[in-house]
Amino acid sequence: MDMQRVFVNEPKLDGNERKYLNECIDSGWISFEGPFVKRFEEGMAQLTNRKYGISVSNGSVALDTSVMALDLGPNDEVIMPTFTIISCAAAVVRVGAKPILVDSDPFTWNMKVEDIEAKITKRTKAIMVVHIYGLPVEMDKITELAKKYNLHIIEDAAEMHGQTYNGKPCGSFGNISTFSFYPNKHITCGEGGMLVTNDEALAERCKLIRNLFFQQGKRYVHEELGYNFRMTNLQAAVGCAQLERIEDTVEKKRHIGHLYTELLKDVQGIQLPVSKKEYADNIYWVYGIVLDDELNIDAKYMMENLSAKGIGTRGFFWCIHEQPVFKRMNLFVGEKYPVAERLARKGFYLPSGITLADEQIKYVVEQLKVCLSNAMK
């Protein structure tokens, strides 16, 4: 087969996106004040069985907002995985609190729940749960620890639109839970984020934080410093159209994951994603693979070879404790998390977007096999 171009992700925008955007333009409601914002917030709250949805401009500031809304600050500690996007730790560091890191489970790639309790101190105020790549964290154990030690749960469900844990929606477990709508997410509006909660006071505080602490009746009198984290009506319109198809998106993602697994199950030298646990079937937000240690190559080498074949890939998260910006702050000095470090160096993901055709998946697998074979020589 001739070389073709397969992107790591392409959003699918062939539902009501154009119709709803035209409604925004025709009505003139393109700002945060438009009706699609409230509609999207209510839709995400319904999807996650929550009372309140609070839209923001992206998933990273959703984390910032959650940390500020919970009033975390200096001398507070927040337990989180080291194997995650930097936004999680950045939100904690920005308020002067300290991230306390946990290594990864080598099979699910999520935070190793068994290591959390030993990290809890008198300064611990919250556990930040991050569901990684397709399988949720074991939330029963997290909720038990939070109750035992009176801790908040911040649930980062950025990659889990439509996923469940023991039948309950991801995004329904935290005191406050967050989502991202970046283009590679199951629901996208280009950029955008959402917080969901059942706590009315938390919801109201999130609304104030995201909107410069404008107050009812005295708009330009500010009791605190807030931020402009608002989502536009244009973004929300796209989000509403995407939300309408979430079940079909999840079904397509699982089809992609199952086909990759079927085609790769006998291939030597790689670890495939866990297809299911007793609490959830993998949603395959992305289809990640991890190279065996016996292969004297890293993910970067394999990604470069696949790129030469026209195949887009992306590396796994780089560990929080190895981030140069945090090293310059003298954070995490001497800390080592071997599983997460291995995932960061040996892991990457294959094209996984919902526009992906079966023939493209087969092409990716064929070229991956060639690259692996060459690496083993």
Score class of each variant (00 low, 15 high):
residue 118 A to T: 12
residue 147 K to I: 03
residue 369 K to N: 11
residue 283 I to V: 14
residue 357 A to H: 11
residue 210 R to H: 02
residue 145 L to G: 01
residue 270 I to R: 00
residue 205 R to C: 00
residue 1 M to A: 13
residue 326 F to L: 08
residue 185 K to D: 05
residue 336 K to T: 12
residue 295 L to S: 10
residue 114 E to S: 14
residue 205 R to K: 15
residue 35 P to L: 09
residue 260 Y to K: 01
residue 25 I to A: 03
residue 39 R to I: 06
residue 182 Y to T: 10
residue 282 N to A: 11
residue 313 T to Y: 08
residue 270 I to E: 00
residue 341 E to S: 13
residue 11 P to F: 05
residue 164 T to M: 08
residue 281 D to S: 10
residue 203 A to C: 14
residue 184 N to G: 01
residue 72 L to K: 04
residue 177 S to R: 09
residue 172 S to V: 12
residue 55 S to V: 00
residue 288 G to P: 13
residue 351 P to S: 04
residue 30 I to R: 10
residue 339 V to E: 03
residue 352 S to H: 11
residue 284 Y to N: 09
residue 147 K to T: 12
residue 276 K to E: 15
residue 217 G to R: 08
residue 324 P to D: 10
residue 341 E to I: 02
residue 373 S to Q: 09
residue 219 R to T: 13
residue 94 R to E: 14
residue 119 K to R: 14
residue 317 F to N: 13
residue 282 N to D: 10
residue 161 H to W: 15
residue 44 M to W: 08
residue 303 M to Y: 09
residue 18 R to V: 13
residue 196 V to T: 09
residue 347 G to T: 02
residue 3 M to F: 07
residue 101 L to S: 10
residue 30 I to C: 14
residue 48 T to D: 01
residue 259 L to M: 11
residue 275 S to Y: 00
residue 261 T to E: 06
residue 363 Y to F: 12
residue 137 V to Y: 07
residue 299 A to N: 12
residue 273 P to C: 05
residue 170 C to P: 02
residue 201 A to D: 05
residue 162 G to P: 11
residue 340 A to H: 01
residue 114 E to Q: 10
residue 295 L to I: 15
residue 324 P to S: 01
residue 28 G to M: 02
residue 166 N to A: 13
residue 274 V to D: 00
residue 95 V to D: 11
residue 192 G to Q: 05
residue 164 T to L: 12
residue 244 E to M: 11
residue 220 Y to I: 06
residue 85 I to A: 15
residue 207 K to L: 04
residue 11 P to S: 08
residue 346 K to L: 03
residue 119 K to I: 00
residue 281 D to L: 09
residue 294 E to Y: 12
residue 336 K to R: 15
residue 242 Q to V: 04
residue 330 N to M: 12
residue 273 P to E: 04
residue 76 D to P: 03
residue 16 N to K: 15
residue 123 R to I: 00
residue 126 A to K: 06
residue 326 F to G: 09
residue 176 I to T: 05
residue 124 T to N: 04
residue 160 M to A: 14
residue 373 S to W: 00
residue 112 K to W: 01
residue 108 T to A: 10
residue 210 R to M: 07
residue 170 C to D: 10
